[in-house]
Computed example of a mutant assay.
Amino acid sequence: MRTILSWSGGKDAAYALDEMRRDEDVRVEGLLTTIGAETGRSSMHGVRRELYERQAAAVGLPIEFVELPADPTNEAYERAMAVAIENHANRGIERIAFADLLLDDIRAYREEQLSDTDLDGYWPLWGRDTAALAADFANRFEATVVSVDGDLFDRSFAGRAFDAEFLAGLPDDVDPCGENGEFHTFVRDGPIFDEPVDVTTGETVTRPVGDGEFHYCELLVPNEPEP
């Protein structure tokens, strides 16, 4: 099946790509990522376009960016995604894969948005135990925690490695994979990479998100000044 992967650059997406590359019935042909048109960053991860491009090169896949306006409405997001999906269908892509694990409402929303398109949805990680997946990921990949919910974490968690120590220190009500949006990651290395994505951590800043706030750690290419 000719497949594209909805790509966040984080652990679940990387794990999904690893799983699909092990499946001889799946051919992943590219990555699809949303970023802000003005900021050039993903909204929840805060990761810059350049770093996504480095990731894509390291895993050997083309990446396409769907640019969203500042503070996009659901309607604006859906319009932009509909155009991207139609373009991929016209190229012969058969389905789009998502790395969602367990949230029924999110999956139902994605299925509804695909219902009038020529692409099917595919969930290679659906129903996995999040604690087991997180532990296996930490053993086989390297990732940095790039953003955390300020209601659940203090600033010191942003910029930490996603590893056994990080998992051991999670609050009891936080999912080990951050499946409820508690934290987000950027994957630097692992079995899907031809070479590591070399980044260092920079300044941590706090920004409002909805009714709360998130702490974001800037990722830098070594010897690069703060953007």
Rank of each mutant, 00 (worst) to 15 (best):
E94D: 13
R95F: 03
R95G: 01
R95M: 07
I96A: 03
F98I: 04
A99W: 00
D100T: 03
D100C: 03
D100W: 01
L102P: 00
L102S: 14
L103K: 05
L103I: 15
L103P: 04
D104G: 00
D104E: 15
D105V: 08
D105L: 07
D105T: 11
R107S: 08
R107D: 06
Y109P: 07
E112F: 06
E112V: 00
L114H: 04
L114Y: 07
S115E: 13
T117C: 06
D118V: 00
D120V: 00
D120M: 06
G121P: 04
G121N: 08
G121K: 08
Y122Q: 06
Y122H: 15
Y122C: 10
Y122R: 07
Y122A: 14
W123S: 06
W123V: 02
W123K: 01
P124G: 07
P124H: 10
G127Q: 12
T130A: 07
T130Y: 02
A132L: 12
L133E: 14
A134N: 11
A134F: 11
F137Y: 05
F137M: 04
A138G: 13
A138C: 11
N139V: 01
R140K: 14
T144M: 11
T144W: 01
V145K: 02
S147G: 05
V148P: 01
D149P: 07
D149L: 05
D151L: 12
L152V: 10
L152P: 05
L152W: 06
F153L: 11
F153N: 10
F153E: 11
R160Y: 06
R160W: 07
F162V: 08
D163F: 05
D163N: 14
A164T: 10
A164M: 05
E165Q: 12
F166Y: 15
F166W: 13
F166T: 12
L167D: 01
L167P: 01
A168E: 14
G169R: 14
P171E: 08
D172G: 04
D173N: 15
D173K: 10
D173Q: 14
V174R: 05
V174C: 08
D175E: 10
G178M: 09
G178W: 04
E179C: 09
N180Y: 11
N180H: 14
G181V: 09
E182A: 08
